[in-house]
Simulated assay, not measured.
Amino acid sequence: MKALQDLFYRLLGFLLVFALAAMCVMVFGNVVLRYGFNQSLVVSEEMARFFFVWMTFVGAVLTFRENAHIGIETLVQRLSRKGRLVCMFMANIVVMVCGAVFAMGAWEQHDINATMFAPVTGLSLAWVYGIGMFTGAGVFLIALGRVWDVVTGKVTEEEIARFAGEYHNEEIMDAVREVSK
């Protein structure tokens, strides 16, 4: 299961790299065409915007997985292990609610967006705004897994340290690994 999850997140990372590279090629190509040949590809402008939206929302899922979103780490770092677990539990419950609302909102808007089309490519705008369903569901599932780990006592010291913002300091992580041995 862990290997399958890692493969999934690696594929998402590849998708981000692909989207960024495609955006760079489209925008740079359009700049060259515009200033070098007095031409432009309007399709590249629209697709670059769509790729940027997808890159942002897929990146949000990957960032949440790594506990790299903004948090109140100065407060959490001062808490005991039990306090950190309570904060971790509560924060992930709030994230689950927000992720569910986000995904359900995107789902409810799907029919409207499916009948609207991009002006240049003619793509259904459900392809653009539909990413909200993926992002909401992805964040919800990651938070659900974390809540489950807290409730069942399977959360590791390293995960607690990451939640508290201590993952960036290698000395702290070495100490956490020593304690958890």
Score class of each variant (00 low, 15 high):
residue 99 G to M: 05
residue 92 N to G: 03
residue 52 F to C: 11
residue 90 M to H: 01
residue 148 W to R: 13
residue 107 W to M: 13
residue 90 M to W: 01
residue 171 E to I: 01
residue 161 A to L: 03
residue 110 H to G: 00
residue 19 A to Y: 13
residue 78 R to W: 00
residue 76 V to K: 06
residue 27 V to S: 02
residue 97 V to L: 12
residue 60 A to G: 03
residue 116 M to H: 14
residue 164 A to Q: 03
residue 116 M to L: 13
residue 15 L to A: 13
residue 85 L to G: 01
residue 35 Y to E: 12
residue 142 I to G: 09
residue 52 F to T: 15
residue 49 R to G: 02
residue 146 R to E: 02
residue 19 A to L: 15
residue 25 V to L: 14
residue 3 A to P: 00
residue 162 R to K: 11
residue 66 E to R: 15
residue 175 A to N: 10
residue 24 C to P: 00
residue 68 A to Q: 12
residue 36 G to D: 03
residue 5 Q to P: 00
residue 63 T to Q: 07
residue 82 K to W: 15
residue 82 K to Q: 12
residue 114 A to T: 10
residue 112 I to L: 14
residue 168 H to A: 13
residue 78 R to V: 01
residue 82 K to E: 13
residue 38 N to T: 07
residue 100 A to T: 10
residue 73 E to Q: 11
residue 76 V to Q: 05
residue 2 K to L: 12
residue 155 V to I: 11
residue 74 T to I: 01
residue 126 A to W: 03
residue 80 S to T: 13
residue 81 R to M: 04
residue 133 M to R: 11
residue 64 F to H: 12
residue 5 Q to W: 12
residue 104 M to K: 14
residue 57 F to I: 07
residue 159 E to Q: 11
residue 130 G to Y: 04
residue 78 R to T: 10
residue 78 R to S: 13
residue 97 V to R: 04
residue 30 N to T: 06
residue 143 A to W: 07
residue 150 V to A: 10
residue 36 G to I: 06
residue 126 A to C: 07
residue 10 R to K: 14
residue 32 V to C: 10
residue 139 V to Y: 02
residue 123 L to V: 08
residue 164 A to V: 05
residue 87 C to W: 00
residue 21 A to L: 15
residue 82 K to I: 14
residue 171 E to L: 05
residue 68 A to W: 00
residue 156 T to E: 01
residue 7 L to F: 06
residue 76 V to L: 03
residue 128 V to K: 14
residue 47 M to A: 09
residue 85 L to P: 05
residue 132 G to R: 09
residue 146 R to D: 00
residue 61 V to F: 01
residue 180 S to W: 02
residue 122 G to C: 06
residue 31 V to M: 12
residue 127 W to R: 11
residue 48 A to L: 02
residue 104 M to S: 08
residue 107 W to E: 13
residue 152 T to E: 09
residue 120 V to P: 00
residue 100 A to K: 00
residue 86 V to R: 06
residue 8 F to M: 09
residue 66 E to S: 12
residue 173 M to N: 10
residue 71 G to I: 08
residue 89 F to L: 14
residue 98 C to F: 15
residue 113 N to R: 07
residue 146 R to Q: 04
residue 118 A to N: 09
residue 123 L to Q: 05
residue 115 T to C: 03
residue 147 V to I: 05
residue 152 T to A: 06
residue 160 I to V: 11
residue 57 F to R: 05
residue 159 E to R: 08
residue 164 A to T: 07
residue 139 V to R: 03
residue 19 A to C: 14
residue 84 R to D: 11
residue 19 A to S: 12
residue 102 F to P: 03
residue 117 F to H: 09
residue 134 F to L: 08
residue 117 F to N: 08
residue 36 G to P: 03
residue 52 F to W: 09
residue 110 H to S: 06
residue 3 A to I: 14
residue 52 F to L: 15
residue 69 H to R: 07
residue 107 W to V: 15
residue 168 H to N: 12
residue 98 C to P: 00
residue 149 D to Y: 02
residue 62 L to F: 01
residue 41 L to E: 06
residue 20 L to A: 12
residue 157 E to T: 00
residue 171 E to T: 09
residue 76 V to E: 01
residue 111 D to F: 08
residue 15 L to Q: 11
residue 69 H to K: 02
residue 9 Y to T: 11
residue 99 G to N: 05
residue 89 F to Y: 04
residue 156 T to L: 04
residue 62 L to G: 07
residue 114 A to F: 02
residue 140 F to Q: 05
residue 37 F to K: 09
residue 124 S to K: 14
residue 130 G to P: 08
residue 179 V to P: 02
residue 86 V to I: 12
residue 30 N to D: 09
residue 2 K to T: 15
